[in-house]
Amino acid sequence: MSLTTTMTTGSATSTQTLGFLHVRTVRGAARCVLHAPEDDAATEPAEPTEPTEPYVLLGIHSLGRATLVRRGSAEACLPGDLFACDGAEPFVLEEEGDFELHLVRIPRRALTLTDRQVRELGGRAPFTDGTVASLLGPLLRDITGLRPGHAPRTALRLAGAVADLVGLLVAEDAVSGPQDGGQDREALMARLRAYVDANLWDRNLTPASVAESQHISIRYLHKLFEGRGSTVGRWIQHRRLEEARRELARPGRDDITVSAVARRWGFASATHFSRSFRAAYGMSPSDWRDGRTTPV
């Protein structure tokens, strides 16, 4: 992540890696903190060891008040307020006094969010309340204070917990936001998702069977998911990968095989499961199970 500060005298920056998360903390006196995309030739180049893959950036202050400027708008950002940005978009934090800012980068592959969901999340005002934000904010502050050297498995589990909460944050925001189809449509979507969750094990789970379960046409089913920037097939795949990832992460399951998990969650084969898992999370299922990771 390319990050610069104006008047850098007296400022301090520390970084660490936690599983697939990259955590950066900036402390200092009143100044502007600028985030600029890596491909912006007007900014300093990113560190050579940092990746250029797409990511989402979460930010939270432990100390200080700032004005968050992005997409031509300015919003107040107080201690404890959580904000999210697409890593490809620039923003400026105008810090009003002494501050401590934590920025946590999550690879897009670990979130399986659509482009539309990332854009909408990056356009939201800082989260000041809400069930998920009240859990995610303190967790982010806590992980920034962890000392280096924690077990790889623990680091991966914590990173996975953050990724899960970001997904829930997006879902909570979608439900609590403006309704364009009324409560009936939202209730239908809830039933569709519940049916998918109850039948993830079934290799024959298809858009046709999902539509039939609610007595709607396949065309209308696709329209419902298109309105949320996704497809039925991608949602089924996403949920299968999430549940497989959770099972592999359970303590005391070191002897569980990748093939068994693939069968349990409806994948056609262990090969297909491993390929899909690596594409989503950047590592093999066995590496995730065993707590092995490489720096992001």
Rank of each mutant, 00 (worst) to 15 (best):
V261F: 00
E243T: 12
T293K: 08
L139Y: 04
G266H: 02
L169R: 07
E242R: 10
L111F: 00
D173P: 09
G145D: 11
S11H: 13
N204H: 10
W288K: 00
V258A: 09
Q117R: 05
N199I: 04
R71N: 09
R264D: 11
R240V: 11
E44G: 14
L200S: 08
E120Y: 01
R193F: 02
E53T: 15
T128I: 05
P207K: 06
F20V: 00
P295S: 10
Y281K: 11
H238F: 03
Y195N: 04
G282E: 03
V118E: 09
G282T: 05
V175C: 12
P295Q: 08
D180K: 14
R292Y: 09
P79Y: 07
D255G: 08
L156C: 09
P152T: 05
R153S: 06
L3A: 04
A30I: 10
R228W: 05
E186G: 06
L156R: 02
I256R: 05
A280D: 07
D115R: 15
S62H: 12
H22F: 10
A41D: 14
P178H: 12
A187N: 12
L165Y: 01
E96A: 13
K223Q: 15
L58R: 01
T293V: 12
E172V: 09
D255A: 15
P207L: 03
G291P: 08
R292A: 06
D98N: 15
V170Q: 03
R71D: 13
F127I: 00
A171N: 04
M189K: 04
T15D: 07
M283C: 15
Y55V: 04
G182V: 11
R228L: 04
T52P: 01
E89H: 07
A190L: 14
G266F: 01
E243V: 12
R203V: 11
R105I: 05
H215W: 12
A88K: 01
R240L: 02
Y281D: 02
I216V: 08
G149A: 07
E94G: 12
P285Q: 01
Y220D: 04
K223L: 13
R109Q: 03
L224S: 08
D164G: 03
L168M: 11
G266C: 07
A36I: 13
G137C: 10
T294M: 13
G252N: 12
